[in-house]
Design a binder for these strands. Structure first.
Lengths: 336, 336
DNA sequence: CTGAAAGCGCTAACAG
DNA sequence: CTGTTAGCGCTTTCAG
């Protein structure tokens, strides 16, 4: 059986309270006592049981993180950022994934609340009008959304709509007029909606006609063949000269599928992504994209929580700067 | 303040023991009582405090996971596999990253032990002769290594050495004779060592001369320019016709850097990776690689732990099947 | 089938 | 500076 604070106390000839002090407030303990305790600690190989402390203090030092998936580097990087910041601050990270499924969001949240995490960082499918999220807000559990942009909840993200608009505007500036938009299921991701809205903004601002969103399932391993066929087969005068994609994963699937069907990128079609995955740089041509600082989003979300614990009020939205990454996948259209 | 089991008991007119039973062993409770308790539970919005239970039962239901980084999809996917399997089994996942630094490995481990996780899944720089790992084995804490292959510790991984040998043999079968090996720092990763050994095996088996490993730092964002220059500049008769890389990330960095220097892949140089990252498929040419089932490795590691909890003995090594993924980055040499 | 009571390991008043 | 004491929320004998 593992040694407890009691064993240490006995071994050092002091009370458990003194051991606790030696551990948590050494300045309240006489140096000689401190040393006696420390000696006992490492003869017994004592490791304080955090569960005992957590029960007593009602603080766990654990941050709950709920993300759609770790298979997308966007979220993996975010978690990396959270973990590093958490380690620096002395927090631990409990992670759950949801695959964009509402039921798993609910389930994960419940588990984390039972575990009495000190705070939550979460990325949900839809922030606004989300019942669970409303419940979290009612409770006094500090939380921050990552990636979701919401008026109702504190969040750290980028200006999705604006960034998308800038990206599309850059395509228009190059001479593109027929620009299509490929997105995740609009009902399953508020970011998909915001980015598509940005696309529409830019089109409208240029007096161009926004095309309806081409929606595909996030969880699908590839784009539907009929869709690719359609995009590839359209004759040159009719087909879009550029494709704005709601995220890099979609962009890569599109580029891969279309190039495989003989479409030249960017010759026949320019492709613009959104996320700024490092892998985009390895593609040929490299993927032009809107870059968001995923690791920093995670780190800032954690810092935001930390400030809440320190008594700060619940900040609203923290909008981090995005970038427009040039890439070979975008060029001026040949047949404008 | 949150409702506790005591509040529920009072509200339902029963003892706390009965509430506990209603929660954990409903079959021991009279249906009428059960319902009374359930009613109280949801009027009070009661959520059992796991910390209390954990202290009492000395089981947390938490699995500690220690990985080098989540920025590499190999580990992110593994964590994804762990998390899914854990959720299915009712465990929670506490994650820490180390960036291949010994001190952070030590630190993470310590934190997880204090948190009294039920078991550990870890990927360390070097498994054999690892002092911490030895300490973990002494303790009665169940643990499994993921990716590390070790005689001393239970682990789930692929046959790194064999897989590397097969990959290199496939290059040799195509006619390659001058094959170079690009690896992570051999002192910082036992897998790098094992894969390089596999390379040497295959070279020796074919009567070819194994080149010394070209070691580069895992954490570096790009390959050193001098290295790339050297590989690109060597004249055609002298330079290797194929490059075996210890992981896909290195392979991508090499391919990117070399193509940028005018080297044709696979015309001038074939490139073989190791990991089987999904992104390799998006490259042009697609990356030939040894694929390992990262998600499954994670899931199996968790299942192995779960079996240990059920009283199973501490299995040795579980070696999962690897694959050899064809890719456009490998072809027969033009100047054998 | 249910209740009383003890205690998991720790911290935090409160005295001294 | 240190010890005594109570109790965080829960489970689990042991009686009844």
């Amino acid at each position: 059986m593992k040694a407890s604070i009691k064993d240490v106390a006995r071994h050092a000839g002091v009370s458990t309270a003194t051991v606790s002090r030696a551990l948590n407030s050494p300045h309240l303990v006489r140096p000689a006592t401190q040393q006696a305790v420390e000696r006992a600690i490492d003869t017994l190989q004592f490791r304080p049981n955090l569960v005992g402390r957590q029960l007593r203090t009602t603080r766990t030092g654990i941050i709950g993180v709920v993300l759609p998936t770790l298979s997308n580097p966007v979220f993996a990087d975010c978690l990396q950022g959270i973990e590093e910041a958490a380690a620096r601050r002395g927090y631990r990270v409990l992670v759950a994934t949801t695959h964009y499924e509402l039921e798993r969001e609910r389930q994960s949240l419940d588990t984390l609340l039972r575990q009495r995490v000190d705070g939550l960082i979460l990325t949900v499918a839809n922030a606004d009008g989300n019942a669970m999220l409303a419940r979290v807000r009612q409770s006094d559990m500090p939380y921050v959304l990552a990636y979701n942009h919401s008026q109702e909840h504190p969040c750290v993200t980028v200006a999705n709509r604006l960034a998308a608009a800038e990206a599309v505007a850059s395509l228009i500036a190059l001479g593109h007029q027929r620009i299509a938009a490929l997105t995740g299921l609009l009902g399953r991701s508020d970011r998909a909606v915001q980015r598509y809205a940005g696309y529409c903004d830019a089109m409208a601002a240029a007096g161009l006609e926004a095309a309806p969103a081409i929606e595909v399932d996030f969880n699908a391993p590839a784009l539907p063949a009929p869709l690719l066929d359609r995009l590839a087969a359209a004759d040159a005068l009719d087909r879009p000269t550029a494709l704005f994609c709601g995220n890099d994963h979609l962009a890569m699937l599109a580029m891969h599928g279309l190039v495989g069907r003989g479409v030249r990128v960017p010759g026949d079609l320019s492709i613009m992504g959104f996320d700024g995955l490092a892998f985009g740089q390895f593609l040929t041509p490299t993927l032009a994209t809107v870059s968001q600082p995923s690791t920093t989003i995670g780190a800032c979300a954690l810092e935001a929580l930390h400030e809440r614990f320190g008594g700060m009020p619940a900040g609203r939205a923290l909008i981090l700067p995005h970038g427009l990454r040039q890439g070979g996948s975008v060029a001026a259209p040949v047949h404008p």
